[in-house]
Amino acid sequence: MKVHLTLFAAAQELAGAKTIELDFEQEQINLHELRSALTEKFPAMSALAPHLLFAAGTDYLPPESIITDGDQLVCFPPVSGG
């Protein structure tokens, strides 16, 4: 299955791309597996990976979320506005 990610801020810089696509052999994954896949593909992201936040549209994904084929997600570091 494929998962599409739009990246922001440091996540975008470390991946060197605004949007990426990840392939999985499983039919569904959890956020922990998504973090692992990101670290594997982008070793520079390993320090940030445990802290990354995920959203679908304009809502945060709960930690227990299950991700399936074709999901379009947003991924970014802890926010630092204000």
């Binding site: 922001f8 801020a9 440091a10 810089e13 940030l48 445990p50 802290h51 936040l53 959203a55 970014f76 570091p77 802890p78 926010v79 630092s80 506005g81 204000g82």
Partner: peptide, 20 residues
């Protein structure tokens, strides 16, 4: 709120701020 700041330090380097 998904906003991020990038520091422009006086030594010429830049760095994303992301509290972890």
């Amino acid at each position: 709120v998904p906003v991020w700041k990038k520091e422009n330090w006086s030594d010429g380097t830049t760095e994303w701020v992301h509290p972890t």
